[in-house]
């Protein structure tokens, strides 16, 4: 099926998305290159809590201990690590990259998890003709592949990949 060009959603749609409270639980695996170019991997459980324009992501060990809390608000970002003072920055990407060695595309993810394209930039979308579900989405240098949906059309399994800097993320959503 031919990828279709998508007009960014209307203002109302974006406002509606911003007001909602969204929670996800899941697991992630990330392959990235650290500052001196060595390939690294991170794996763990995560909790995503979104309220209005503020997104909180908690990275956790399987036994439930918090490894990091990342907060991304419209004009500020905070990151907390165990036994360390909180770190602040304007943008969450820089904060995460400095502290964790990798950064998640948080602003894009909030929409890609719906699933939907982010409103403020062009996206190329491929939908499955049989059920209308998004199969693949390309936006902001990311390729997002949706592998599995729940019967209620929620995203279950998705991969995200970025060329430069190289970054590959696998996500599974439990809730």
């Amino acid at each position: 099926c031919a990828p279709t060009q998508v007009r960014p959603p209307s203002a109302e749609q974006t406002a509606a998305t911003a007001r909602t409270q969204v929670d996800y639980d899941g697991r992630f695996a990330i392959k990235y290159n650290d500052q001196n170019g060595t390939e690294r991997n991170a794996y763990g459980n995560f909790t995503w809590h979104q309220q209005g324009d503020t997104i909180n992501i908690e990275l956790k060990s399987p036994l439930g201990q918090t490894l990091a809390i990342i907060e991304s608000a419209p004009s500020s970002a905070t990151l907390q690590l165990p036994n360390k003072p909180p770190q602040f920055a304007a943008k969450v990407d820089d904060l995460m990259r400095d502290a964790l060695g990798f950064s998640l595309p948080v602003s894009g993810l909030r929409y890609w998890l719906e699933p939907a394209p982010a409103p403020d930039s062009k996206a190329t979308i491929e939908t499955d003709p049989h059920n209308g579900r998004i199969k693949q989405l390309e936006q902001d240098g990311w390729t997002v592949d949706y592998y599995e949906y729940t019967p209620e059309n929620n995203v279950k399994r998705m991969n995200l990949s970025h060329e430069n800097p190289p970054l590959a993320i696998r996500l599974v959503l439990d809730r």
Partner: peptide, 22 residues
């Protein structure tokens, strides 16, 4: 059986904390 009985409050903005995972 593993249950989370208390989820941390989110930091800075005091956004209502994380929902305890199942």
């Amino acid at each position: 059986v593993q249950r989370q009985v208390n989820a941390p409050k989110a930091p800075a903005s005091g956004v209502q904390g994380f929902r305890p995972s199942g």
